[in-house]
Design a binder for these strands. Structure first.
Lengths: 342, 342
DNA sequence: TTGTATGCGTTATCAT
DNA sequence: ATGATAACGCATACAA
């Protein structure tokens, strides 16, 4: 077992003082070139690694950013994380990722763990509207900036980075209507911070096309009970069938819901798009050819991550408290495929 | 801006000593119940959060595990991370994830960053055979245990957690052969730690069926140049076509390669499985119905993560240096679909 | 039962 | 140009 060298060790070995060694390694102008050279070479040779923990304790800066998402293995999320990661590498920040699994309790716990451990800033896609508002506010007040991404429907005053939910939903809906499908079931997540605007866009589009929104053609799934989503979709479809109100299109408001819906339809032996067209927010990355039955609203996930990260760093590095916050809405891309264009 | 309270602050406010406060909060037997009560209530009220950085500096334990993977947004990897995360939550460990992007240089950097920051252990899926051997060895020697997962073909002496690569490849190959496809192109990654065994299984199966391995029907892609993989596949297929040696099946040795191959085939307008059957290692989670053309070898990703994590924690928490290491090979599942069963 | 003092490895301030 | 020393927040051995 080899112990790691500290400044003290090097100082002893070289018969120098700790501060001389420290300054040499940080290339201070106070130290002579010759001494610097000796110290640096010695450090290199014994591969000295500075203890970041000690440095953090001293400087108060952790060079770490906390990220809270509901599930890292979700395609959409992992693409955003990719963007965050890219940003972090340029800026020499480390990233600690925690999962909320769409539970307010776990989200709270994640915030606590991160705040204990010490972070310079927090990126969060909150579980629900105003979830853990007070904790996030306290964090901000203690000097740790917070930036919201993806699910930005939250009262916290800060930068928010998401997509044009309303517009995107409007366009997707219009696409369905234009292909002749007028009975559209809207499936969404309960209280998840993007649902509201997407529903608004959906409704607005119907209205603009002279159609009424039918509350029966609306299903809200509980994300915190993820396992039950499929069942509730099946249930809804069966109910509609039984009441002679079967739809000819489905609008999936999130990545998860869209994918699950397709699975359910396949399981029920309902042909897509012949019987039911499907359009949905989705970022699954598979070749078009593999996935002919799904028209998608694609979000610029990596960009969301990158932008959110850089807005956060802006706050972290700003010398004075920031008062003016931005809400950034990135554009999405509508990709029509066979599922909605018979 | 509200400052966070420290032990010192509480001690001052309560006219107690720092150590009394410290001991109270850790429920020491030395402190009277009444004092403990006062301190705890005060701490709770001002929501005191212990400074983990300081604690780490003192105790030497970070309660953090480093994880190095080549790409977090890869489906396969993110599923493994999910498993690691699950394990870590039970054990109260935090996870720091770094990406190597299949570059030995970046992998080295990741190891350095993690070791600077302080971790109690490292989980790594190495870039290549013996990549950064010395750094990992040094880490081990300095008392930070390392566990390898996924790509376990590496000389480092430690626990290794992967799947039965040889057996899985054998079975997948046999599946192709049994469906009558004998001209199989094997596409794999160069030097990535799972390739070798999968190729061995492939060859063995051919041999057992009285077939020779044709070096022309073999393509090795360079993962560190990810963007070029598609081109090299296209190139290979064109070459085979030109030389009148066209295959009727493809074996994809990794998740990425398999997906890319399908994209390429679609782009070239080659019908799957009519013209070319495809079977591959793949963990993309989409309903069967969406993905009828791909037979897969599915790996127990979450289990890989969980097992790797628990083996690491075993090392982290063991009082004495461990000498006996295990190589764990989990079972995979072959899922035949239309792509290989005309 | 409570308090004092020390050190973890840095950085930074102030001598020399 | 180099060195001595204090401080970051906590845990802990030891003193009272």
């Amino acid at each position: 077992m080899i112990e790691r060298k500290t400044l003290k060790d090097i100082a002893n070995d070289l018969k120098l003082s700790i501060s001389t060694v420290s300054k040499s390694l940080s290339d201070s102008y106070e130290i002579s070139e010759s001494t610097k050279k000796i110290v640096k070479e010695y450090a290199e040779k014994h591969n000295y690694v500075p203890n970041k923990v000690a440095r953090t304790l001293k400087t108060g800066k952790t060079n770490t950013i906390g990220v809270i998402v509901f599930n890292i293995s979700n395609t959409f999320i992992s693409q955003i994380l990719e963007g965050i990661h890219k940003g972090s590498q340029d800026e020499k920040y480390d990233i600690i990722i925690m999962q909320s699994r769409d539970s307010i309790q776990l989200e709270k716990h994640a915030i606590e763990v991160l705040s204990m451990r010490g972070i310079d800033g927090l990126l969060i896609s909150p579980v629900a509207f105003n979830s853990n508002y007070q904790q996030l506010k306290d964090l901000q007040d203690s000097g740790i900036p917070v930036v919201l991404f993806d699910r930005v429907n939250h009262d916290l005053q800060t930068h928010k980075v998401g997509v044009e939910n309303q517009v995107s939903a409007y366009e997707a809906t219009e696409h369905l209507l234009n292909s002749g499908r007028k009975n559209i079931l809207h499936i969404t997540g309960k209280n998840i911070g993007v649902a509201e605007d997407r529903l608004l866009g959906f409704k607005k589009c119907l209205k603009d096309h002279g159609l009424d929104f039918d509350p029966n053609l609306y299903l809200e799934c509980d994300y915190s009970k993820h396992d039950e989503i499929e069942d509730s979709i099946i249930c809804k479809l069966n109910y509609l069938k039984k009441t002679g109100n079967m739809v000819n299109a489905i609008f999936g408001a999130t990545d998860d819901i869209t994918t699950l819906t397709l699975g359910v339809l396949a399981g029920m032996n309902i042909k897509v798009p012949e019987e039911i067209s499907v359009i949905g927010f989705s970022n699954i990355r598979i070749p078009n050819s593999l996935n002919p039955s799904l028209s998608t609203v694609v979000q610029p996930t990596e960009e969301i991550g990158l932008v959110a990260f850089s807005k956060l760093i802006e706050l972290v590095q700003s010398k004075y408290p920031v008062e003016e916050f931005e809400t950034i809405e990135l554009k999405t891309k509508l990709i029509p495929r066979k599922s909605s264009t018979l």
